[in-house]
Design a protein around this nucleic acid. Structure first.
Lengths: 201, 201
DNA sequence: TAGTCTACCGAACGAGCGTTCAATATTCGA
DNA sequence: TCGAATATTGAACGCTCGTTCGGTAGACTA
């Protein structure tokens, strides 16, 4: 793996290329499977030689980690901001769901890859950061649900609501299509309805 | 792969051993990953020699198919019976969810393996039966939801409710523990609450 | 109990994998 | 524009994988 170039023009180019590889590799892995896609196949799909990948990543697994990193890291800050804004609990949950579902919709390939390799994530040492990100997000979700439960606005036990939401939102990556019947906002609002007592007609 | 023995005593033994391998392999694959577990490793975990697996299965993938087959096949008949009983739609959905969640709880290892390899299932020829089973079950779920929607008893669009339920129930395999906070029945009832208008206080 | 069918073993094999690296092409900045 | 830094190539390597198969032990039935 080459170090990031010091010269500014090449540094920027390096970042762009690397990010592009992550993005497009996510698609390839999501469709063909991470384990089932050889580095040679992947490189061919990306229009690169096999060895070129090692210019940007230490190895195949490092690329996988980069893919999974995009799932939580960019979501944490907006989520925290929503909780800190301290609006009424119902609006907070709806906002959180919109941000979350929107992010899943944008990164559904990444999430489909994560789903394939979740068991690897749970064990490896180099996966600590990924685990941490997921744990942090789940804590924020728990906090939002706890506030709702306090006000009696939750239709379920908070622990069950948490698992239900994690399940339905993550599963969204398996079926969501950009120009499908539902927009990410409609999906998020629908999911909100499932756990809230109010807002159903 | 050896043919099933013709002699009755050995035939029964063959069935038992084969089923035992499927069951225990599901656990090993769920924890270590299907692709990440070599046949040698698996055999060691099962207390067998590597070659012995080929006595019962054509290969590693045939074993995987056998694991995934147990996910829908035994669920279809009870589900169909529930729909045919033609009780009120709400009771039908609750019954369906109890059967479904119960089955997931019993076969959570199998489901965790399926989740890893779903992309393989979607493409291969030899996976047709597995795909068919899943499609059949989803049709039954759709029917149960359509009946509810007709009576205005559904809190969400039926299509969204379907995806939400598929997500939360399948995700249950990732966190359910036999002596955990919730019984399969409590989980199923909680999930029912998420999509129904009634039954929340 | 003899004979045949069945179960299992485990070393060996070829294929395909992820990775390396010397060579070459390209790009940027002084 | 020239030279150093960077980008990419692709053949080669060592290794692990799934699978095979001849051999042996065990089990059933006639």
């Amino acid at each position: 793996m080459a170090p990031r170039p010091t010269r500014p023009a090449l540094g920027a180019r390096y970042d762009r290329r690397r990010a592009g590889v992550v993005e497009r590799a996510a698609r390839v892995f999501a469709e063909r499977g991470y384990a089932e896609t050889s580095v040679a196949e992947l490189a061919e799909q990306l229009g690169l030689a096999a060895g070129a990948l090692y210019h940007y990543f230490e190895g195949k697994e490092a690329l996988l980690i980069a893919i999974c990193d995009e799932l939580t890291v960019p979501l944490l800050e907006p989520a925290r901001a929503l909780l800190d804004a301290d609006r009424d609990p119902e609006a907070t949950l709806r906002g959180l769901l919109r941000a979350w579902v929107g992010h899943v919709a944008e990164h559904r390939d990444h999430l489909r890859v994560f789903t394939q390799v979740r068991h690897v994530v749970d064990h490896g040492e180099e996966w600590r950061a990924v685990r941490r990100g997921r744990k942090d997000f789940e804590r924020l979700l728990d906090e939002a649900l706890a506030r709702l439960a306090e006000g009696g606005q939750l239709a379920l036990d908070p622990g069950l609501a948490r698992s239900a939401l994690l399940g339905m939102v993550n599963h969204t990556a398996q079926w969501y299509r950009p120009r499908g019947r539902f927009s990410p906002e409609e999906i998020a609002d629908g999911y909100a309805t499932t756990v809230l007592v109010a807002g159903r007609d």
